[in-house]
Simulated scan of single mutants.
Amino acid sequence: MTASDDTAEQIAARLDGIVRRQRRAAKADVEGLTHGRFRVLRTLDQADRPLRLSELATQLGIVPRSATSVVDDLEAGGLLARQPDPHDRRATLVALTPAGADLLATVRRNRRDAMVTLLDRLTPDEQSTLLGLLNRLADD
């Protein structure tokens, strides 16, 4: 069974709308945080250790020069800090600062709260079904 073009387009439009709503909610009360900057903070948080700029760029799927620009901006805002790599004097590591971790927690809380508001329209069984379907679609 395949989805009709019309059905696929409708689903894509609905998902886009939900994602936009989530991004807006995530940035509520958070100035200057783009989706790209959020991804950098999230990636460093998930790494559970400081990363070299090249590692960060690879995990983000961007070129190192782009990673450097974003890190520069986040460092200027006090959200990240560069530190020397103890294993390679030529390399620099990037780590979240406490302010960066706090901002990331705020963004995650805003996203969660926005999703809870959306999901309140569904019964617990519908929420469970939706999660199961999304998991199936997300599996690679």
Rank of each mutant, 00 (worst) to 15 (best):
residue 20 R to T: 09
residue 52 R to S: 14
residue 113 D to L: 11
residue 100 G to P: 07
residue 52 R to D: 13
residue 96 L to G: 04
residue 38 F to L: 10
residue 67 A to Y: 04
residue 17 G to A: 06
residue 97 T to M: 10
residue 95 A to S: 12
residue 139 D to F: 02
residue 75 E to T: 15
residue 3 A to K: 04
residue 58 T to V: 04
residue 51 L to N: 06
residue 120 D to T: 15
residue 73 D to T: 13
residue 25 A to T: 13
residue 3 A to D: 09
residue 31 E to T: 06
residue 4 S to G: 14
residue 95 A to R: 12
residue 69 S to D: 06
residue 120 D to K: 04
residue 29 D to M: 08
residue 10 Q to F: 02
residue 14 R to Y: 05
residue 56 L to N: 06
residue 116 V to T: 13
residue 84 P to R: 09
residue 42 R to G: 08
residue 10 Q to D: 08
residue 124 P to K: 01
residue 94 V to I: 09
residue 43 T to V: 09
residue 71 V to P: 07
residue 69 S to P: 00
residue 123 T to Y: 00
residue 49 R to S: 14
residue 40 V to I: 05
residue 119 L to S: 07
residue 67 A to I: 02
residue 119 L to K: 08
residue 102 D to P: 03
residue 97 T to E: 05
residue 22 Q to A: 10
residue 113 D to T: 15
residue 75 E to Q: 12
residue 64 P to H: 09
residue 98 P to Q: 02
residue 48 D to P: 07
residue 48 D to L: 11
residue 89 R to F: 02
residue 84 P to D: 15
residue 53 L to Q: 12
residue 125 D to V: 12
residue 109 R to W: 09
residue 26 A to Q: 05
residue 30 V to C: 06
residue 138 A to E: 09
residue 100 G to E: 06
residue 62 I to P: 01
residue 17 G to R: 05
residue 65 R to G: 04
residue 87 H to T: 15
residue 25 A to W: 02
residue 36 G to E: 10
residue 113 D to Q: 13
residue 92 T to C: 05
residue 18 I to D: 04
residue 31 E to C: 00
residue 69 S to H: 07
residue 73 D to R: 07
residue 61 G to N: 01
residue 121 R to V: 12
residue 94 V to A: 13
residue 102 D to H: 08
residue 85 D to C: 08
residue 128 S to K: 06
residue 115 M to F: 04
residue 133 L to R: 08
residue 39 R to I: 13
residue 52 R to F: 00
residue 56 L to R: 07
residue 50 P to I: 07
residue 66 S to I: 02
residue 20 R to S: 08
residue 132 G to L: 01
residue 108 R to I: 11
residue 8 A to E: 04
residue 70 V to W: 05
residue 15 L to N: 11
residue 29 D to C: 05
residue 111 R to M: 10
residue 62 I to A: 06
residue 65 R to W: 07
residue 134 L to N: 02
residue 44 L to M: 01
residue 23 R to V: 15
residue 140 D to G: 15
residue 56 L to T: 03
residue 4 S to I: 11
residue 84 P to E: 09
residue 132 G to Y: 00
residue 138 A to R: 10
residue 21 R to L: 12
residue 105 A to M: 12
residue 138 A to G: 09
residue 97 T to C: 04
residue 88 D to S: 13
residue 129 T to I: 15
residue 38 F to G: 14
residue 18 I to K: 00
residue 48 D to T: 14
residue 114 A to D: 15
residue 124 P to N: 02
residue 17 G to E: 03
residue 57 A to M: 08
residue 49 R to W: 04
residue 135 N to I: 10
residue 33 L to C: 06
residue 105 A to L: 09
residue 33 L to A: 08
residue 132 G to P: 00
residue 13 A to E: 02
residue 43 T to P: 06
residue 103 L to V: 11
residue 46 Q to E: 11
residue 83 Q to G: 14
residue 105 A to N: 13
residue 128 S to W: 05
residue 29 D to K: 04
residue 98 P to A: 02
residue 92 T to M: 12
residue 99 A to R: 13
residue 90 R to Q: 14
